[in-house]
Simulated assay, not measured.
Amino acid sequence: MLNDAVCFKNVYIVTGYTDLRFGIDSLAALIKSKLGKEPLVPDTLYLFCGRRTDRIKGLVWESDGYLLLYKRLEQGNFQWPRSESEVRNLSQQQFRWLMEGLTVTPKRIVKQVEPPEYMG
């Protein structure tokens, strides 16, 4: 479920380090303090990562309460942005990169080009 986020309208990551011992109420309060508003948005996933980058927590508001998700990788690490302490919205592509162990901000992107008119 967590590798494919098509069921979520928005995916946000809380960059920097988060104490993964936090439960639902502490994570919701963290989102509120960083966003300045309540995290009660249906179909929105908030992701957190601790110092050990092999596990993440996710928080989702459903119509009747919160859903807490936890994922631990058996091998490899998540490439989590550490430099800023903010909430960032991810595109579907960036989320896929994160779940595949890649960075959410690639150093280089292959540019698309127009094909030549005549190839001889």
Results as ranks from 00 to 15, higher is better:
Ile56Met: 03
Leu35Asp: 04
Thr44Leu: 02
Leu73Cys: 09
Lys107Tyr: 08
Leu102Gly: 08
Arg72Gly: 07
Glu100Cys: 03
Thr103Phe: 01
Gln94Thr: 02
Ser83Pro: 15
Ile31Pro: 00
Tyr66Glu: 10
Ser83Asn: 11
Trp61Tyr: 13
Leu47Thr: 07
Glu100Arg: 06
Asp43Cys: 13
Leu90Trp: 05
Val104Lys: 11
Leu90Thr: 08
Glu84Tyr: 15
Trp80Arg: 07
Asp54Gln: 12
Tyr70Arg: 08
Leu47His: 05
Gln79Asp: 14
Ile56Cys: 01
Glu84Ile: 10
Leu67Met: 15
Trp80Val: 03
Thr103Val: 12
Gly36Ile: 02
Leu40Cys: 08
Ser63Arg: 14
Val87Cys: 03
Tyr66Asp: 14
Ser33Arg: 09
Met99Lys: 03
Lys32Ser: 12
Val104Gly: 15
Leu102Asn: 15
Ile31Thr: 00
Glu74Val: 13
Phe48Trp: 04
Asn77Phe: 11
Asp64Val: 14
Glu74Arg: 15
Lys57Phe: 05
Tyr46Cys: 00
Lys37Met: 09
Trp80His: 09
Glu38Val: 10
Leu30Asn: 02
Val41Glu: 11
Cys49Lys: 04
Phe78Gly: 00
Gln94Arg: 09
Gly76Ala: 07
Lys37Ile: 14
Arg82Ser: 15
Arg108Phe: 12
Gln93Pro: 14
Leu90Arg: 06
Glu62Thr: 14
Ser85Cys: 04
Lys32Thr: 13
Lys32Gln: 05
Lys34Trp: 01
Lys107Phe: 14
Asn77Trp: 07
Arg51Ser: 04
Gly101Phe: 01
Leu47Asn: 02
Leu68Thr: 10
Gly101Met: 02
Arg82His: 06
Leu98His: 02
Gln92Leu: 13
Gln94Ala: 11
Pro81Gly: 12
Phe95Ile: 02
Leu47Arg: 12
Cys49Ile: 03
Asp54Gly: 05
Ser33Asp: 04
Asp64Cys: 06
Tyr70Ala: 15
Leu73Arg: 12
Pro81Lys: 10
Phe48Asp: 02
Trp80Pro: 01
Pro42Tyr: 15
Leu35Phe: 04
Arg55Phe: 01
Gln93Tyr: 10
Leu69Asn: 07
Pro81Arg: 14
Pro39Thr: 00
Ser85Trp: 08
Arg96Leu: 04
Leu90Val: 15
Thr44Tyr: 01
Leu102Ile: 06
Tyr66Pro: 13
Thr53Phe: 03
Leu90Gly: 06
Leu35His: 04
Ile31Ser: 00
Glu86Ser: 12
Arg55Lys: 11
Thr105Asp: 05
Gln92Val: 08
Ser83Cys: 10
Leu30Ala: 05
Arg108His: 15
Ser91Pro: 08
Leu30Phe: 04
Lys57Gln: 13
Leu59Arg: 02
Tyr66Phe: 14
Leu59Trp: 02
Arg51Leu: 08
Ser33Trp: 00
Leu102Gln: 15
Thr105Cys: 07
Lys107Pro: 07
Leu73Pro: 03
Ser63Thr: 07
Trp97Asp: 04
Gln92Thr: 04
Thr105Gln: 12
Ser85Asp: 15
Gln94Tyr: 13
Leu90Ser: 11
Leu67Ser: 08
Pro42Glu: 12
Arg72Asp: 10
Lys107Ile: 04
Tyr70Gln: 12
Val104Leu: 12
